[in-house]
Amino acid sequence: MKVNRKEFPLDRTRQVAPQILEILRSRILSMDMPPSTILSRISLQSEFNVSQTPVRDALIRLEEEGLVEVYPQYATVVAKIDIGHSVQAHFLRLSIELEAIRRLTSESPEETAAALQRVLLRQEQELAPERYDVFDLLDKDFHRTLFERVGILGLWTTVRRQSVHLDRLRRLNLPMPGKMEAVLADHRAIIDAVRSGDPEKAVGAMRKHLSGTLSIIDLICEQYPDYVSR
């Protein structure tokens, strides 16, 4: 699976270690750097034209997030996708987002549906394989809207931090035939359910949507056996 690597110039007016962290995290989550990719500290220092300290600090953070594994005196490699961690992240998202959609459908169905519709309209414009990155960002915006509207935006950071392995699974799932169209169909169903003012209908639509990737976990593992750890 090949993804065109984007250039991320560093802003020398800001600390570079956090920028390197974001760049490497983005490459790993997008599968530009798939599991088992070796990360050479010397090569990274050369690429970003920095000393060893910011590269080391960025790799330490990635290790804490479970995205790389460090083998002292040997190498740093991109970690395999942890299926168990993905299942836990899925449970966390279900717990929060089902309650959020239930409450919003009861309290502000029209306003919530309109906010979600605005994101959906933008996402519909990105329905092309070469637009995976933008499509995926808008998918996150769709769900972030729920956190914002229900007043728990602080939890969004927690969910994103806990979802790194699930995000990589989703990235493997997204290019599968019909997946992008299925995501849009799910989003439309969620919006229609919210607008109906029926909380249980909205919860059902959201549950179906959030369970999409894990429902075909065996297929993903079969297609990418070297990428996952069960």
Rank of each mutant, 00 (worst) to 15 (best):
P72K: 08
P72A: 04
E63R: 09
I23Q: 01
E111R: 12
K208E: 15
D198Q: 12
E126V: 12
Q117N: 13
L169E: 02
V87I: 15
D141K: 11
M206R: 06
L92V: 10
V78R: 01
V77W: 00
S106H: 12
R207M: 13
L120Y: 04
S95F: 14
R14F: 10
I28M: 05
F91Y: 14
L24R: 06
R5T: 10
D11Q: 11
L24M: 02
E222Q: 13
V228S: 07
R144K: 15
G66Q: 01
E126Y: 05
L92M: 13
S108D: 08
I42E: 15
Q45K: 11
R195P: 03
R131F: 07
I101D: 04
V87M: 14
L153R: 07
R171L: 05
D139T: 07
T37N: 12
R161A: 15
K2P: 11
V50Q: 08
G204F: 08
Q45F: 05
L184K: 06
R61I: 07
G66F: 02
E148F: 10
L219G: 09
A75E: 15
S36N: 15
Q125W: 03
L169R: 02
A79T: 07
H85T: 14
I83D: 06
E63P: 02
G197M: 04
M31N: 11
V194I: 11
R56L: 13
R102A: 11
T158H: 11
L44N: 03
Q123G: 07
M206S: 05
D186T: 09
I28L: 07
T145V: 14
D136V: 02
D32I: 04
E222F: 13
D198K: 06
G204C: 09
P34A: 05
G66V: 06
R149G: 00
S229C: 12
R149M: 15
I216V: 15
E126Q: 13
M176I: 14
I38H: 10
R195D: 05
V55H: 05
Y74H: 14
G84Y: 08
S163D: 11
L24H: 06
A114S: 14
N4Q: 15
S196G: 00
I83S: 08
Q88M: 15
Q123D: 01
Q15I: 09
D192G: 01
S30L: 13
C221F: 10
G151F: 04
P18F: 03
A115F: 01
V77G: 00
A202T: 10
L62I: 01
G197Q: 03
V159L: 12
M31K: 09
S215A: 15
L153C: 03
Q45V: 07
H187E: 07
Y132W: 13
I220G: 02
L10Q: 01
D57A: 14
K208C: 06
S51L: 08
I20E: 08
R122F: 10
Q123S: 05
I190G: 04
F135A: 03
Q162C: 14
S211D: 09
V203S: 00
D192W: 02
V159C: 06
E22A: 15
P199E: 04
A115T: 00
L59F: 08
I152Y: 11
F147P: 04
